[in-house]
Amino acid sequence: MSQVTRRRTGPSKGDLREAAILEAARALFTERPYESITIDDLAGGAGISRTSFYFYFPTKTAVLTALMARVGDELAASHVWFDAEGPAAGLLREQLAASARLWRDNAGILSCAASAMATSPELREFVGRVRTRYDERAAEKIRRDQAAGTATTAIAAHRLAEMISAIRDARYEQLAGASDDELREAVDDLTEAISRLVYGRA
């Protein structure tokens, strides 16, 4: 007699609880400083007990790291300029617009991460990997363009990539609470600055 295996078609109870913790954390990290948020706050926001919380995450920082991983994945998915040839200002603007929106929409999480990195080697390592991944992809593109004769060779590709990150991050830090018009202005500023830096023209 054959047996019929029942297949799960939706998220499990555990999946839903983990998602609830992350959603509660997103709201709390957006509204309050990282240091003021407790495990009880996160568990209560998700509608579970403190004991149940530890079944899914060992620490508050682990929850923040999971949220940062989502942001990092979305950021990586927006990197359309890195595969282009030459200045490709339209794709550069598209990439910057996507990452600027991510930065603005997750400003609270990013602010909490900046605070937590002071005491969390795990989070510092994760953020470092995300930054390195960005810089390596930028440097690879610049090397291709240098070889093709479109990008400046006066500065090494990896240094240019680091400078792009510094310029971008400094401008993005001003975007918390920015309007759509302010965000577009920031993207325009960055598109011109990066184009001039790498290619010598806007």
Rank of each mutant, 00 (worst) to 15 (best):
A84N: 07
Y172K: 08
F82A: 12
I155G: 11
E35S: 13
T51Q: 15
A69I: 00
Y172T: 05
I164N: 04
I164K: 02
G47K: 10
E122S: 13
S179K: 04
A166C: 09
R32I: 00
E182H: 09
A62K: 07
E192D: 14
R32P: 00
W81G: 04
M163D: 11
A20L: 02
E162S: 13
T65F: 00
L92V: 01
A186P: 00
R131D: 10
P121W: 01
L175K: 05
A19H: 09
A46L: 09
S52W: 07
M117L: 12
S52G: 08
L64M: 03
L22P: 00
E182G: 12
T150F: 06
T65W: 00
R32A: 10
D145H: 04
V130D: 08
T132F: 15
R101I: 07
S78C: 12
D189H: 10
E125Y: 00
A25C: 08
D180S: 09
L28N: 03
A151Y: 04
A43Q: 02
R133H: 12
T132H: 15
D145E: 05
Y199M: 04
S2N: 12
F126S: 14
G72K: 01
A89N: 07
L28A: 13
R124S: 14
L16H: 06
T61C: 05
A76L: 13
R17M: 11
T38L: 10
D181H: 10
K141I: 01
A148T: 01
A107R: 06
E31I: 00
A193Y: 03
L160G: 04
D83E: 11
I194S: 02
T191D: 07
P121R: 04
P58L: 08
A114Y: 08
A139M: 06
E31M: 10
I48L: 10
L67F: 10
I39D: 10
S165K: 02
P87V: 02
A161T: 01
A20Y: 09
A77R: 09
A43I: 01
E162V: 05
M1K: 09
